[in-house]
Design a protein around this nucleic acid. Sequence first.
DNA 1: TTAAGTGCAAAAGCTTTGCGGGTAG
DNA 2: CTACCCGCAAAGCTTTTGCACTTAA
Lengths: 153, 153
Amino acid sequence: MLTDAARSDRMELFERLCHERGERCTVQRRRILEGVLSRDDHPTADQVFEAVRKRLPDLAMPTVYRTLEYLVRVGVITKACHTGRATRYDPRIDLHHHLVCLQCSRLIDFEDAGLDRLTIPETAHVGFEVTDFRVQLRGSCRTCREDERKETS
Amino acid sequence: MLTDAARSDRMELFERLCHERGERCTVQRRRILEGVLSRDDHPTADQVFEAVRKRLPDLAMPTVYRTLEYLVRVGVITKACHTGRATRYDPRIDLHHHLVCLQCSRLIDFEDAGLDRLTIPETAHVGFEVTDFRVQLRGSCRTCREDERKETS
DNA sequence: TTAAGTGCAAAAGCTTTGCGGGTAG
DNA sequence: CTACCCGCAAAGCTTTTGCACTTAA
């Protein structure tokens, strides 16, 4: 979960970038961004919709989809890599890593200085330009392992 | 792309595991597995369906979905982490990494001994059990960069 | 022989599109 | 003012479910 300070920095960054691009900083855009920033999981469009709708009852689903893509384009949120079916958004734009549960598709943020120091190998020979990286540690989360244990016994 | 030898090893592995589990090794299951193994991208269920249907015209979509999940459960293919909407399957079950294009969502296999040697940090304190890992190098692929260059000029 | 697996039809879930009206700048 | 953005309705993909029939073992 982002700190309050980090959240308000990001809101300011958004307002600045939005104006620089000559685009409109609407109530919907601000609330949807706040909606993503106030979560520590990696919400789907639908989860953001349900959360933001509480304070903005007329909000429509297409606005959520359009806005989330817009916020990614502006660079104030990112898309998370996931194994499931619905697109998932990530409030973080800095270097961090994920624990990926292969049973329930849960994504958990994971911080590790050792992983951050990874040297990015050369990818020019395949014509790819690397801007960033993520390490995904795959396995099973606490909840899924506990569920499995119950079933066995 | 897997070599012919690797493909036939995987088919044998599947037949063995399938029988050990007391389940049936049907034509559909074998063809769908072959369908995934003969690609070097990370196909969606629909792409597998279109490819396999050429040799098995009565194949139905629900069979493809059920079978792909089954093949993952048996352990002869894996799910790939992706940023898009449709689930993507990976013919590889060994340690390897991905180049992720943030523009077109393309996933490209990437081999690097340095990345393979990464030491997996401790995750017990968050209750997570790691079985495997992947490094994702994020950026833009050759095709997307060429397209961008065309638009600019 | 017979239970597991398949195809079909239909529903459910996720995402996009087109358009008329509303609003930030 | 007015171009950009929103809400609505509808359509377009992706995935799952229930059931009767088929087939691997």
